[in-house]
Design a binder for these strands. Structure first.
Lengths: 338, 338
DNA sequence: AGAGGCCATCGAAGCGCTTCAACACACCGC
DNA sequence: GCGGTGTGTTGAAGCGCTTCGATGGCCTCT
């Protein structure tokens, strides 16, 4: 294990000089810097993370709390996590992966031990039990998702209320008057996960304004549950011509079942999905959809957290990404429309 | 920030005593221990991770390298990652998330800086460029996946060769003589990812032994690419009655397209999938499948790595999990079989 | 030419913990 | 009552780095 002291000796300078070359916190003359850098390379020196953390009380690690629930659509989580890790690296930070399992205890452990300099918390519930602890922690925190009360917090999320509204608007403009919402699994609503409830709220409000009748049914996403859900929808509202799907796992089953029932998309029914682009373009029908910008969310979260760490903190703020609806092949004029 | 010294003062003992209470490395009398523990609780003490790492040269962190490729089926990765994080925690370790992006440099950085005590590497290629570095590192390493040469390495993986064989056996036993393999995306083969090639090898060898004709076609997994792949399969081998699907993204498209073409599953064609249980049970037909035990792989990897760290190293070893085929509703006797 | 300023570098003091050697004490058997 | 054995506790020496204040050389200004 090569140490800074050895590098210093090899380069014929003091330890502090090497340190300053490394950190750039003081100016070092070009020849000295080069000599030091050369020694570093030659000896294969890597600063010891522990010593660094101890001396500087900065670990250069960002903790990322991901849920370990399985009722959330996982690819989105993974995409966010990867984006977080990648973006963090580009800012010189590493990412510590914390699962939801430990719950609030994890927050305490990490903030207490100085393991991480900051936290990014995913899958936030409206009344999340981790929030009080995060408030108390001296570490900067960014939430991916929106709790009920955002006072003093920094959050990043897709504007799900606007997303819901956008979906209804699109369908309404095409003449659809009876729209069914294929929602997330019931457990997601029971937990009061913000994005699910907000989407619903957006859908309902705009639907009210536009005179669209809405029917919301949670759905597990399996083929079987989708089958049941679909039957009940058409039983209750035989005139349904529009679908909004929020649960990505339900997309394939829905399309498949509609086809099997002889309902053509988009001639007989239109489908609008809220899902990552990839899902929308790879389904059996290219889906009109509002993209969930997983990558961007992860990236923004890191940028906000890094800004806080570097002191360019813009304090409390909520970054709500504007939804964008892309029209593809799954939506068209309601049957019987001029 | 409460320090160990403050705890010691509060409890009226020396710092080393507190340290020994914490680590249990020396016996401490019950009364003293209780006094110390009480002080710890009362002051809300958390040991500083950096100081600990520096003094003990152990960070209690395990690095996990995940690929950031998008051509791998992501949910499996996520499942493994979560299992790794959870299992690691239960052994007192945290997990550092490294993306493949940095490549070999990440290995050097982590082993060099003592950031992590050990590494778990996912998505290993047959001739992985990280292998030489891992060999050289003094940190214990466990691979999830099997490179070509495993000398001196510890690996965990599903026995994909046996998996392939098992799939053919099942179909052969049902009387199928012409079987098509819907493989992973071409890029996966080009990269020489072990699991894809081994499965294929297992399939081919056993097919040869059993007199089954095999046709292998890589497939992106999108609906469109599956459509093309399927047409070509039936063009070349109209008599195909069995399918083995390795690419999980291709499962839904395949079932959907077969149905659309009027081919009933399992009456006309049988389908065997290699995928997580959840996928197999949630598809439109309950799939006969060989489960990819993502959780177990993550767990085993951590256990092996921890064993190495604690010195119960059993040295070089390859833990190949035996595949298990579960018969469900997607496979049946070949048409025309007695 | 001397005061003042700036730049590059150095020395030393920690950061909070672990761990080793050493010590104090009680207890045993003879 | 003395050496031996063992248990519980302590002091002190670092672990490898950052950072602050100090130092010395050189340049500029008057």
């Amino acid at each position: 294990m090569v140490t800074l002291a050895e590098v210093a000796r090899h380069a014929g300078v003091s330890a502090s000089t090497v340190s300053y070359v490394l950190s750039g916190k003081r100016s070092i003359s070009a020849p000295t810097r080069e000599r030091v850098e050369h020694s570093i390379k030659e000896l294969g020196y890597h600063p010891n993370a522990g010593a660094r953390a101890l001396a500087s009380s900065r670990s250069n690690i960002i903790a990322l709390m991901v849920p370990l629930r399985t009722d959330m659509y996982v690819p989105v989580m993974m995409e966010i996590a990867i984006a977080v890790a990648t973006t963090a690296r580009s800012h010189g930070y590493d990412v510590l992966l914390l699962t939801g399992e430990e719950g609030p205890a994890a927050v305490r452990r990490v903030t207490g031990s100085g393991l991480a300099d900051a936290m990014i918390v995913m899958d936030v519930e409206l009344e999340d039990e981790r929030l009080p602890l995060l408030h108390a922690a001296r570490q900067p925190t960014v939430l991916i998702g929106l709790p009920a009360d955002t006072v003093g917090l920094t959050c990043v999320d897709l504007d799900f209320t606007a997303t819901g509204a956008l979906c209804v608007e699109h369908l309404a403009a095409l003449g659809h008057r009876e729209v069914a919402i294929v929602g997330e699994a019931p457990a997601v609503y029971e937990r009061h996960t913000g994005f699910a409830e907000r989407t619903l709220e957006g859908l309902r409000r705009r639907a009210g304004e536009l005179g669209v009748r809405l029917l919301h049914r949670p759905c597990q996403g399996s083929y079987e549950s989708m089958d049941g859900t679909l039957s009940r929808i058409f039983d209750e509202r035989p005139g349904t011509t529009g679908f909004v799907v929020q649960n990505e796992a339900a997309i394939d089953p829905l399309l498949s079942l509609l086809r099997r029932q002889g309902r053509a998309v988009p001639e007989d029914v239109s489908v609008v999905a809220v899902c990552p682009e990839q899902v929308a373009t790879q389904a059996s029908v290219r889906l009109t959809s509002v993209a969930v910008p997983a990558q961007e969310m992860g990236q923004r979260a890191v940028e906000l957290v890094v800004a806080k760490l570097e002191g360019n903190a813009s304090g409390e703020q909520v970054a709500l990404l504007a939804p964008e609806l892309t029209v593809r092949a799954s939506s068209g004029p309601a049957p019987g429309t001029a």
